[in-house]
Structures are given as C-alpha cells and as structure tokens.
C-alpha cells in the first residue's frame, strides 16, 4: 500500500505548491493522476517516490510510515520505487553509455554479478538493440533514450513504479510500446503504478482508475472550508 495522507509540499518555505493532498495506491493497482502542466502533480509524484521531502503530511509505504527522504531514506525503501521522468535527455547522465545507464542502479547497490545478463534481458524487453546499448545519450533519439530510462527503472525489480509524464515527449508508437513494457512487468510482478499525465485518453486506457488533480485539491479545500 502506498498511502499519501494530507501532504503539503513545495520548494519555498511559505509557498507550498499544494496543500493537504491525499492519495492511495493499493498493491498491484494502477492509478492515473491527471492534471494540467504546472499544477504540482509531479511534485506529488516525487514525494511518493521518496525524492522530495514534504513540509507536512505522512506517507505510509507498505504499512511503514516514511520519516526520511532522498539519501536519508533507507536504501531498501528508496529502491522499492522505479521512477521514469518526462524528459529523457535530462534524466540520463550524458556521459554514460546506455548499458552503464541501465546497470547503474545494480552497481550502486553492489549487485554487480549477473548485471550484464540482467541488462541484456531488460534491453530486449524494452526493445533496445546491442548497437544502441553502446551509445551515449546524445547519439540516440528521445524515444530510444526513454526506453533505456524505463529499463533503468525496472532493473532493481521495484515494487512500485512512478511514471511522471513518461510519454509526453514521445510519438504514439513508442508510447504504446513503453506502456506495454510497464504493464507486462506489472503483470509478472504485481507492482503498483502511479502514472502522472495530462492525457485523459491515455491514462484511462492505461490505468485501473484515473484521479483528477482538481478533485484531490478540491476536496482538500472543501475539507478546509468545513473545518
């Protein structure tokens, strides 16, 4: 269970991006979070993936309350999430070849043995050829790079996937391909998914249920007014 309760978060002290937002994702469930760009839904996704400490509110991950974020969070908690971002160019270290990009989490967690096999297996899953694996990010297209970023997110077999506008920059065919990879992985492992996006058609097709950002913040405001 991924349970976000009354989260308030932002980047400057007194001006949070949003207040009192609550959202729950059950194990194995796929939840779509729909909202216009710049509304703060990406910030919520980062809070959920333990990448941004909220100002207030609680996050309960599989029954355990989360108290620390980013590097302070225990590694086992951090790596329970696979994260894919909107812009592949910015989410890939420009100096790493795609193989190293995908294998990086394995190395960071000291699981070097068998990493070559795991990378090869994932590359096949996301549809990257051996030739592409040897290249650096500036030598491949956005779509190919996003495939590598998805492989990196899956390499540690996370229990939760957070896809923040994963397909916003991609064409229809690559979008369908990446969504299929995510769904195949979820079917095999029972992982939960939080998919953030602005395309209702896509999220409705992809996810078990789609939550409107305005509904989340709207109820929060209504609750505040009732108090």
């Amino acid at each position: 269970m991924l349970d976000l309760r009354a989260i308030t978060a932002g980047y400057t002290r007194n001006a949070p991006v949003f207040r009192d937002v609550s959202l729950t994702v059950a194990p194995g469930e796929a939840v779509g979070l729909l909202g216009p760009s710049g509304c703060g839904k990406s910030t919520l996704a980062r809070v959920a993936a333990l990448l941004h400490r909220p100002e207030s509110g609680t996050l309960v991950l599989d029954g355990e309350p989360v108290r620390r974020w980013r590097h302070r969070a225990p590694r086992a908690q951090r790596t329970a999430f696979g994260v894919v971002f909107q812009q592949p160019r910015l989410s890939a270290d420009p100096r790493l070849r795609l193989t190293d990009l995908i294998a990086e989490p394995l190395r960071a967690t000291g699981r070097r043995e068998g990493s070559a096999d795991r990378v090869a297996e994932l590359a096949a899953t996301v549809g990257l050829t051996a030739d592409l694996l040897g290249r650096r990010p500036h030598e491949v297209s956005d779509g190919q790079l996003q495939r590598a970023c998805l492989a990196r997110a899956l390499v540690l077999r996370p229990r939760w996937l957070v896809c923040d506008e994963m397909t916003a920059m991609l064409d229809a065919s690559t979008t369908a391909a990446l969504v299929r990879v995510v769904e195949d992985y979820r079917a095999a492992t029972g992982a939960g998914l939080l998919a953030v996006g602005h395309d209702r058609t896509l999220l409705d097709r992809w996810c078990d249920r789609t939550v409107d950002w305005t509904a989340l913040t709207g109820t929060a405001l209504a609750a505040e007014a009732a108090r």
Partner: peptide, 17 residues
C-alpha cells in the same frame, strides 16, 4: 536534474552521486 533523482532512487549513496 532528474538524472540525480534517478540515481537516488536507484540506491546510490551521497558519495556515489
């Protein structure tokens, strides 16, 4: 940059980042 976020999520320590 998001790639640092990705590294954190991938379990990289402060030193490694």
């Amino acid at each position: 940059r998001p790639f640092i976020d990705a590294a954190v999520s991938g379990g990289a320590s402060r030193w490694r980042v």
